[in-house]
Design a protein around this nucleic acid. Structure first.
Length: 488
RNA sequence: GUCCCGUUCGUCUAGUGGUCAGGACUCAGGACUUUCAUUCCUGCAACAGGGGUUCGACUCCCCUACGGGAUACCA
């Protein structure tokens, strides 16, 4: 790769869990890097020590790992770069591109309040913009606290071409001489990002639309510091169903919660990518490789997207059927273990059998947790039967007779295969002058407890003679002892 | 308030001057002489409003409305 090769970063602040919005930003960065053969980096913006925590950093790292969005280089901690930030401020000060501001916070706040009350837009008065050497010296000698402000040109226009939002123009007079270093000597975010992105040699900044208005400010910093200005791509925000911005306080769900719901990474990512990205054609389900191949920043929409969990679940189901039972093995067995249906040893000892069970079920599942709810009967006899199904499938008076006859025939059936099981069932039905469907439904309910399941005969073959006979007998008993009303 | 941005079916989106405005989710029907939670088919449903420009606007321009973001010694 040449030195112009793409370097992008995801820069979360560890003040909370990684949620859907952050995950999507990380994903877009990752896809862009992979699509262009560039590097995907991670920087933790932990300068707000009050709100940041180690635990949160770990959570974010874990979530990214689960999503398969591993950074290509060691993650950078912003807090470790403070000396660089301070140096940059010093340099700006020396070159006169920034200046010390001795106005107190109280005075500033009061001015802002007044402006708001009078419905004027607030701007810094510029009090300290042109202090003389003399005045500055005197203030310093008096030990008056100061912040440092960047000097923004009073005239002119700042413009840049956003890769999503196209041409953006902002009048310089709209940009305040914003603070880049606090009175306690710590640099402010706006300065820190610019210095960090430059030192990480970031070529493309892909981030949320909420940073769009910050961009002009940052461009002035790049210019003042003599750094090359990177390209920007702002992605629209994700909205809650009421159209409001999705936030921690308002409907945002952490990545961990989606994992717990039973999403698999590829399904989740595919769902995520539809929030603000679309490509010509009718494809909805994309593998990771598809996305890497097709992803273009130009195809990101400018409109905020409302998050739709139903579609997300459907997409996850598509991925579940797309994957092989082997690929799903670890994920599915772990939910089964958690549900107490399996234990660790069997994962190894019954690998073949479990793989077959997954294969039987997977095309009908939407979330991993469905394997527990709808896959129970793979491991244990039904302890109850769906009441609606009882009403529908067991109330025919010939049901007990049919089940009994079928059970009888299964005692000696060889081989115990799907084909043989089906032939046998049809024979039983026919010899009793009944429709095979009646028996099929009755048996399914007996064996699974549900009115729905994978193909019945394959399932019976899988469960084996002993289990099937046991469950058929159980059902007979249930029908008898619970006085299931029989009608002709 | 000011600045910036946006507005195609309920939702996610395709569409860049001439299309019956396409697809997906959801929902409703139907098919698969075995169920559906799989699969397939069918149906419902959209260019925010008003002005221009043009032979012709969802597509270009302006205005209005609505929505979002930003306006911190937070990130």
């Amino acid at each position: 790769m040449t030195e112009t090769s793409v370097r992008v970063r995801f820069a979360p602040s560890p003040t909370g869990y990684l949620h859907i919005g952050g995950a999507r930003t990380a994903l877009f960065n990752f896809l862009y890097a992979r699509n262009t053969g560039g590097k995907f980096l991670l920087r933790i913006e932990d300068t707000d020590t009050e709100r940041s925590s180690r635990a949160m950093i770990q959570q974010i790292l874990d979530s990214l790992k689960w999503l398969g969005l591993d950074p290509d280089e060691t993650p950078v901690l912003q807090s470790e770069n403070i000396h660089k930030h301070k140096e940059a401020v010093k340099k700006l000060l020396e070159e006169g591109k920034a200046y010390r501001c001795f106005c107190s916070k109280e005075v500033l706040d009061a001015e802002r309040d007044r402006a708001n009350k009078e419905n004027r837009s607030y701007r810094y008065s510029g009090q300290c913009r042109n202090l003389t050497e003399q005045q500055i010296l005197q203030n310093l000698q008096e030990n008056r606290p100061y912040t440092v402000r960047i000097r923004i040109p009073e005239e002119g226009l700042t413009r840049f071409k956003d890769m999503v939002f196209k041409n953006i123009e902002i009048q310089n007079r709209e940009i305040d001489d914003f603070i880049i270093m606090r009175s306690d000597g710590t640099p402010v975010y706006q300065l820190a990002v610019v210095v960090d992105d430059a030192s990480m040699r970031i070529t493309h900044i892909i981030r949320g639309e909420d940073h769009l208005p910050n961009t002009a400010k940052q461009i002035h910093l790049y210019l003042a510091l003599g750094y090359p200005v990177p390209r920007f791509a702002h992605v629209p925000l994700i909205l809650a169903p009421d159209g409001k911005r999705l936030s921690k306080r308002h409907g945002a769900t952490s990545v961990g919660e989606f994992k717990d719901m039973g999403f698999i990474p590829d399904g989740f990512i595919n769902g995520l990518v539809h929030l603000g990205w679309g490509v010509q054609g009718n494809q909805t389900v994309f593998t990771r490789d598809d996305l890497i191949r097709l992803f273009k920043l130009q195809d990101i929409s400018k409109k905020g997207a409302v998050f739709d969990i139903k579609k997300m679940i459907w997409i996850n189901g598509q991925h579940l059927s797309l994957k092989t039972a082997e690929e799903l093995y670890t994920a599915v067995t772990s939910v089964w273990i958690k549900a107490g249906l399996l234990d660790e040893e069997k994962i190894e000892s019954e690998k073949l059998r479990i793989t077959e069970a997954i294969d039987l079920l997977k095309s009908r599942m939407k979330l991993l947790n469905d394997f527990v709810e709808f896959g129970r009967y793979i491991f244990v006899d039904p302890v109850s039967y769906d009441p609606a199904a009882i009403e529908q499938r067991w109330t025919n008076q010939s049901v007990p007779v049919l089940i009994e006859a079928y059970a009888e025939s299964l005692k000696t059936l060889t081989p115990f295969t799907a084909e043989a099981l089906e032939d046998s069932l049809r024979n039983v039905a026919e010899s009793h002058h009944e429709n095979a469907a009646i028996l099929i439904h009755a048996v399914r309910l007996a064996v699974t407890g549900f009115s729905v399941s994978p193909g019945l005969f394959r399932l019976l073959a899988f469960l084996g003679r002993e289990t099937v006979l046991q469950r058929l007998n159980n059902s007979l008993e249930y029908i008898k002892s619970n006085n299931v009303i029989l009608r002709g």
